[in-house]
Design a protein around this nucleic acid. Sequence first.
DNA 1: TCAACGGTAATTGTATACAAGCTGGCGGTT
DNA 2: AACCGCCAGCTTGTATACAATTACCGTTGA
Lengths: 207, 207
Amino acid sequence: MIVTGELVNGERLDEMSLSEHFGCSRTPLREAFQNLAASGLLELVPHRGAFVRLPSLSEMIEMFEVMAELEAFCGRLAARRVTPQDLADLLETVIACEDAVANNDHDLYYIENERFHHLLYKASGNGFLTDQAKKLHRRLKPFRRLQLRVRGRLQQSLAEHRAILAALENGDAQEAADALRSHVAVQGGKFNDLMASYKNSHLHAGS
Amino acid sequence: MIVTGELVNGERLDEMSLSEHFGCSRTPLREAFQNLAASGLLELVPHRGAFVRLPSLSEMIEMFEVMAELEAFCGRLAARRVTPQDLADLLETVIACEDAVANNDHDLYYIENERFHHLLYKASGNGFLTDQAKKLHRRLKPFRRLQLRVRGRLQQSLAEHRAILAALENGDAQEAADALRSHVAVQGGKFNDLMASYKNSHLHAGS
DNA sequence: TCAACGGTAATTGTATACAAGCTGGCGGTT
DNA sequence: AACCGCCAGCTTGTATACAATTACCGTTGA
């Protein structure tokens, strides 16, 4: 797949060779291309073909900027609308994350981290917002994953999750929004981490 | 088109008859379907076909809620990043809107209103945010248009545009964000206006 | 030697033909 | 009489063939 680094950035995807590779005709492939283009992973140029489009560093920062704001908004809404069941589910993921940190299990943490955020989106009580947040989260997934590999990031992330949950329990919209914004935003040391992992991913793509 | 009310809500779009109608084959039609589905206007059910999907009232309110927040964020960023050229362009649209109000020209106001908001998105200095805001704006377009038909809404909208521009000129991020949020948000009397126009649009669609 | 032009090959866009799956109605059974 | 299962017709999904556009490369001229 694209995120695993099998594809070089501006590479053109040949419909015919790919259809051979997947054992299907060009028609369903072209439909898949359109889906990927809608997700921003490909760029379709008329009569030229489909080109792999890895976001540039600045685009990625822009996306994180928006993601931070979306999540902050989720938190603000959730502080008012969160249900006891949501709080219980969120607590469950925090506990699971604690176990993951204790065992230094990055994969488990990654999964539970995703669950935490998805639950948060849902707790906003706004289905459209939930969808949008999920889409962007998914798009940033590979980079987020690389970030979590940074030493000590797990503990920090977990502490932030706890703070967010506490804010939601207290119904403090401002606190929840601020905590989420800084949790997601690329700022301070995280910027360097992101840049390093970005270069790393490009190295991978180039190979 | 869908927004003009030629289509009933859950109607199924027949590929064959539509391809005849447009004088093309089913292949490009299916591609168009996928685009519309990605925009949320159609729902594609495997082996069943494409169904017209007008957002429900609650979905629409959810979308406006997100739109308000996106625009508020644009305003917050723009208050810091706006360029003199942006401010000049924005002022131009406000003046054009004043003319439109003076002549009670709804169509002109509609166009300049759109220009104002697009300029604002651009002024945020975040290309991804600009794209997202444009997409959602476009999706809400028909309902926004119906709203502007409400008596006195033009004057109010214009006054809000002036306030937003003033906040940007002063570099007041908080003020710009708040002004935009309440400008876009569906609240107070606007809720009833929206509901009325929504029912109206459904009446249209049903005929 | 470099640039501009034209032709060929290759690739994408479109149309059509074929396969697979769903819908609805008919007949049989309980 | 009501319900379940089967078959026919139709609609979507896929494969392939054809058309149109583009890119590359060789040739030609200055």
